[in-house]
Design a protein around this nucleic acid. Structure first.
Lengths: 224, 224
DNA sequence: ATAAAAATAATAGTAATACTATAAAAAATA
DNA sequence: TATTTTTTATAGTATTACTATTATTTTTAT
């Protein structure tokens, strides 16, 4: 079984909807590949245009800046995570089991991604780990936040927070814990791979397993 | 009483030691002010030269890139944190009290900073919150890590990890918890101020108090 | 006090970045 | 078939992140 996932992404992020044309979709696919390969700092619309085999001007008709393109991609990812989480959680009634599954989903330890066609989720996950904070750690954060471009992230955080409250209705920090779990999933994975002395992963491999085990300890000891 | 703190900063980070001349110190002071004011993306050596009242060429004789200058500043901060933590912890024997004080220090909830002269610690703290991850979230992380420029961060993490182990010698994730606490101190402060829906801070003010209270819950429920 | 060395200023230049603008060709749609 | 939209091709701009060179000033050693 295969899925084609489309999400309505915030209109402030693009000038012309990249989902509305083949070249638009090619821009997104190649942007994911290119940011994955060279990182956001080295990523330029000129290089992207070469990959897409179009001109820079065409890309500028879709996105006004590379920063908005990054945020567009991250929005797609956050929408995707919330969608997958809600879908897979339907079969589960036990709240603890729900949160365990959430942690698997955010660390990509579940085997779900292979069934999705639209974008390369492995690469997308790498981008989220290394680049997502660059979307909001900018001086203009308050202005761009007014355009609701971080709503998918907030929504995901809210959703996880509700499950935390199911487990312990008296817990005072459901949303902070949720955002901490998401951020920690990213930075512990990065640290385990690149700055292992900031972690206790002895294996030098098995980064995902390590991070997942740690997140479980973190989450469940805090909630109770 | 006033202190003048100097640390030996990794030589790979500069071409000429900025501590060795007045203009060098002025470069660091003005860099802190300028990154604080306009953010790392907008920060350029041209603008910095105007503030320092020297030429760009002079700054390039001290630092080969703005990225290294940022890492230099962060190194100073990490050295400072470890120094202050070790100093203030000498009077304390109880391990739990030690960790509580560490959390106060990393959130800047302690009243210590006013006694330090060298650099503006309030601004430095803002820079650490918003810009520190940009120091290592780059494609070249493995190469620059080989030059030991992240040693002060690792050392601080190790130090906090040892205190965690004092509280519970069987805890399996002392260093991951330490790095999580440091990262969380930064991103929860940022979220509380700019993306409050990712937190449970109802007050819209009192960000530091909120973050400190949350970190205490996080740390002590995980360790036990 | 003088010579040598080092630091800084002044200036110029370069390739690349992050755009904006415009006219013409091509494609889609009515 | 005409009209609109999209894309290309091309040009241009201000800024960035540097490198390079020469001249002047300051520091240091003798």
């Amino acid at each position: 079984m295969e899925f084609l996932l489309k999400f309505r992404i915030n209109e402030h992020l693009y000038l012309r909807n990249p989902e509305s044309s083949e070249i638009g979709k090619s821009i997104i696919k190649n942007a994911i590949n290119l940011v994955y390969e060279i990182g956001f700092e080295q990523f330029t619309f000129k290089k992207l245009a070469q990959k897409v085999e179009c001109t820079e001007a065409t890309i500028y008709r879709y996105f006004s800046s590379k920063h908005k393109l990054l945020t567009y991609i991250l929005n797609w990812y956050w929408n995707y995570l919330e969608f997958v989480a809600k879908m897979r959680l339907q079969q589960i009634t036990d709240s603890t089991a729900k949160l365990k599954l959430i942690l698997e989903i955010i660390t990509h330890s579940d085997g779900y991604s292979s069934e999705i066609q639209e974008y390369d989720l492995q690469k997308l996950h790498r981008i989220v780990i290394s680049e997502s904070s660059k979307s909001y750690l900018v001086k203009e954060v308050d202005e761009i936040n007014k355009e609701f471009v971080f709503n998918p992230l907030k929504s995901l955080c809210q959703f996880i927070g509700e499950i935390v409250l199911e487990i312990n209705p008296k817990f005072a920090y459901p949303k902070s814990l949720s955002s901490t779990l998401m951020e920690t999933a990213h930075d512990q994975q990065f640290f385990s791979e690149h700055l292992p002395k900031l972690t206790d992963n002895k294996s030098r491999t098995q980064h995902k397993n390590y991070v997942l085990a740690y997140l479980n300890v973190l989450a469940f000891s805090v909630i109770k």
